[in-house]
Amino acid sequence: MMQLKKYLGPLNRNNPITIQILGVCSALAGTAQLKPAVVMCISVAVVCAFSNFVISLLRNTIPPRVRIIVQLLIVATFVILVDQVLQAFFYEISKMLSVFVGLIITNCIIMGRLEAFALANRPLPSAIDGLANGIGYGLVLIIIATVRELLGSGTLWNYRIIPETFYQNGYINNGLMVLPPMALIIIGVIVWIQRSANKELQEEY
């Protein structure tokens, strides 16, 4: 039970975005619509899980002096593979995400998990830890993207949610929602809600 709780930490109490405030850049850029956000979330989870697994397998052979280089190599490999697969089979989405797939390499969540977890734990727990962190990151992305797409474009997953009659009666999409700054504000709101629900997350001043 303790074990399980530790792994589920990233989903709420130890969420990479809202608690550790990591990976915020891609959370701002890729979340104007739900579809690219979900693809981004899957990509990050896959890269995080696999690189955690591989680094954990190699952990006793990696010379500490070059461990960051080895980590970068492994992460970059998985990111390029994911990018290639997206370009081959999900071309539209890969164009929408453009540089941000490549930038998964620099996502602090992944390097952070490699350093903090994979180098000191066995492969299977490491893979689960990577997956849980990827999902924790993805959950926040999906919440942001849902709010932004619904209020910014009136759609979800490109299906119209807000009916035409609303527009005929003067409803207008919130243009600010489509722009990155609004994602930052939504993250702020999520952090606020999460901390007011969990008293122990609040810091003393």
């Binding site: 052979t61 990696i62 010379p63 500490p64 002096r65 070059v66 280089i69 080895v70």
Partner: peptide, 10 residues
């Protein structure tokens, strides 16, 4: 780890 090891490893 010796330098040779690191070199070959990388």
């Amino acid at each position: 780890f010796s330098n040779t090891y690191i070199f070959i490893y990388i």
